[in-house]
């Protein structure tokens, strides 16, 4: 860096540049929030789906699974599990309900959460709702 480029010029670029991009980012975030109702399937968020999200969070499902590609990479992607399971919430419930307490020998295991029938319905509805968000066609195929 040559002599004519001073520290205060560098500082001004920092302040001006950051201020500009913070502002632009906030404007785009605002625009996103306005555009979301078209994409995020919010008209289908029932009390049951809301409870499902709570069950999802209270049991830290995201600590093993990814959901829309975010989370952990130890167990299958679940944003499209509703489609993978033949659009059946019953199949999802059945899978969660039937996990053995002591796991499956030698295989990556999912805990038995002892969810109530209401919670099972809710989390399955939550996964169904998630699968219907417009996420630009991700994942590439049914395997997630």
């Amino acid at each position: 860096m040559s002599g004519t480029f001073t520290k205060s010029m560098a500082r001004n670029i920092f302040i001006g540049g950051s201020a500009f991009f913070i502002f632009l980012f906030l404007a785009l975030s605002f625009d996103t929030v306005r555009a979301l109702p078209e994409r995020d399937n919010r008209h289908n968020i029932t009390d049951q789906v809301a409870l499902g999200k709570k069950v999802w969070e209270d049991n830290n499902c995201v600590g093993c699974h990814s959901l829309m590609g975010e989370g952990a990479y130890f167990a299958p992607e679940l944003a499209n599990v509703y489609d993978r399971f033949g659009k059946s919430t019953e199949a999802i419930k059945g899978f969660i309900r039937s996990r053995p307490v002591d796991g499956i020998p030698g295989r990556r295991s999912m805990p038995q959460f002892n969810l109530s029938e209401e919670e099972l319905d809710a989390v399955a509805q939550f996964l169904k709702w998630t699968s219907e968000i417009n996420d630009a066609g991700w994942p590439p195929n049914i395997q997630g």
Binding site: I13, G17, F21, F25, L28, R39
Partner: peptide, 22 residues
């Protein structure tokens, strides 16, 4: 750090591809 924020703030967009955002 000027370059960090000039690129990194809008760079957040690399997480918004497939989560339902525009």
């Amino acid at each position: 750090i000027a370059m960090t924020l000039i690129t990194g703030i809008l760079g957040t967009g690399h997480h918004y591809y497939w989560i339902g955002a525009p």
